[in-house]
Simulated assay, not measured.
Amino acid sequence: MDELERISTYVAIGDSFSEGLNDPYPDEPDRFRGWADRLAELLAERSPGLRYANLAVRGKLLRQVVDDQVPRAVELDPDLVTFCAGGNDMIRPGADPDALAVVFDDAVRRLRATGARVVIFTGFDTRGLRTGGRIRGKAATYNMHLRAIADRRGCTVVDLWSATIFNDPRAWYEDRLHLSSEGHRRMALRVAETIGLPVKESWHEPWPPLDARPDWLTMRREDLYWARAYLLPWIGRRATGRSSGDGRGPKRPTALPL
Rank of each mutant, 00 (worst) to 15 (best):
A255T: 07
L50F: 08
E205I: 02
L232N: 00
L179V: 10
L179G: 10
R92C: 05
R109H: 07
P93F: 11
V66W: 09
I149C: 08
M1N: 02
A192V: 01
L179I: 08
A85P: 10
P97W: 01
G247Q: 01
L61T: 05
D168Y: 07
L179S: 10
K60Q: 14
R72L: 15
G49P: 03
T164L: 12
L258C: 04
P208G: 01
G236D: 11
T254C: 12
L217E: 09
A85D: 02
Q64M: 06
F32R: 15
I165A: 11
K200D: 13
L42C: 05
V119G: 00
I195P: 03
R63S: 12
P253H: 07
T156I: 12
G133K: 13
F32P: 11
S202V: 09
K138F: 07
E75L: 10
G133I: 09
R130Y: 11
G34A: 10
L55K: 06
F17W: 15
S8L: 08
T122H: 11
N143C: 07
P250N: 14
A192E: 02
D151Q: 08
G59N: 00
H204E: 12
D168M: 09
R117C: 01
L210Q: 13
K200L: 12
E19A: 13
D223W: 13
G183N: 04
E193V: 04
E222D: 15
T122G: 13
W35S: 07
R220Y: 02
M90A: 15
L76R: 09
Q64T: 06
R38P: 00
E182M: 14
L39F: 03
P257I: 02
Y225D: 14
L160N: 11
G86N: 08
D125L: 14
R176Q: 03
V57Y: 10
K251R: 14
D68T: 09
S180F: 08
E3L: 13
A116P: 01
